[in-house]
Amino acid sequence: MSEDQSFMLDGRRVPFQDGQTVMTAALAAGIYIPHLCFNPEFAPHGSCRVCLVKVNGRVQAACATPAASGQIVQNETGELREIRRGILQMLFVEGNHVCPACEKSGACQLQAVAYYVGMLAPHYTHFYPRRPVDASHPEAVIDFNRCILCELCVRASRDVDGKNIFAVQGRGIQAHLVVNTTSGKLGATDFSLADKAAQVCPTGAILTKHRGYEIPIGQRLYDRKPISVVGDVATVAESKGGRRHE
């Protein structure tokens, strides 16, 4: 009976099953809804707000809205594009994203989503927060300047790796990613590149050491095709420029 359930998204009928959200049902139907903190392997988080759609006329996060029969969902509208663009602009000024100097440029989901929603330049005044880079780990670097607080590494380390290495601390604009050791350094943890947490970051915040620029600019993940076609960095294999281990 549950196969008969469906809702309408931008004029298309989207089937869904019990327990699916607007996001997961759309994804299964091959429809792209921009997102950053959502990853189909994890419970929805609802924090980035990039996936906003209109459900029966109300703006809601697609990743956190249970699918229901008869919903009328709007996704690709000018109004939503403008809201999503505004949110991307906020993420870019909150951190320090110097894309030309970033190893992940071209293979960064944040950047790709920004392009997708039509954000070509920063808009708001930059906050220029002072955030250190942590290179204490032999295999990985964390550049907190590029963290967008999606908590995917937090969830992956806690729920999949069972290591609980990351957490977000502080309130409001003080919120920041921390590493669960007395020194706060990644080098003091048992973090490993094989961890799920190493494969989910949508930005260049978590990077592999001793490897870089293996795929030349121009041929990177999102250089030729938009994210709506290519998919998330976490779902694309490393050899193809994504983050997923083969």
């Binding site: 609802g46 980035c48 707000r49 906020m90 993420l91 909150e94 409001g172 003080q174």
Partner: peptide
Amino acid sequence: FVHESCGFCTPCRVGTSLLRD
């Protein structure tokens, strides 16, 4: 509102500061 935002979601965490400025 800047002081009281919990910091979980982007538009509130960043938007309250932008608005204050």
